[in-house]
């Protein structure tokens, strides 16, 4: 399993750190964001994989899943709140574009991928190709 990341949140965090250093505010307690967004779990059994992503506050049409060969990409954009009269006291929830890629170790059936979004959690089930499933082979023993 290999993950490739492009992470706008990390870039923002880096920018903030550099700015803090320039302004001499490096000592203030800082909030460190998770390095990769969204965080993923991957489950496997002999029939396939389940990829679970924590993506709170999205709508279905803001999330795009694509599969090319054995490589699946989850991408989308979390919109920023643009309320005119909102005076922020604290802003930790990230927003912006995200993308994560999962590379499966076996061939998968791209036409049988199913995705579900509930309570801010995206679950994608990806069945393995028939050729990648383990097969029981009977061994005839000659006596």
């Amino acid at each position: 399993m290999r993950f490739m990341n492009w992470d706008p949140f990390r870039e923002l965090e880096d920018l903030r750190r550099v700015t803090d250093r320039l302004l001499g505010m490096g000592a203030r307690p800082c909030y460190t964001r998770r390095l990769e967004y969204p965080p993923l779990d991957v489950l496997e059994d002999e029939n396939g994989f389940v990829v679970i992503a924590s993506l709170p506050g999205m709508s279905k049409d803001q999330i795009h899943i694509s599969l090319l060969g054995q490589t699946m990409t989850i991408e989308g954009e979390r919109p920023a709140d643009n309320g005119e009269n909102h005076r922020y006291l604290r802003r930790e929830r990230g927003y912006g574009k995200f993308q994560r890629t999962v590379e499966f170790q076996t061939q998968v059936q791209s036409d049988k991928v199913e995705a579900r979004y509930q309570d801010g959690v995206l679950s994608i089930s990806v069945p393995k190709a028939e050729s990648a499933k383990p097969k029981q082979i009977d061994v005839a023993v000659e006596e």
């Binding site: 993950f3 965080p39 779990d41 991957v42 489950l43 496997e44 994989f49 992503a53 924590s54």
Partner: peptide
């Protein structure tokens, strides 16, 4: 019956 092969959440 599945196993975790990667875990971040």
């Amino acid at each position: 019956g599945q196993k975790y092969i990667h875990r971040e959440r």
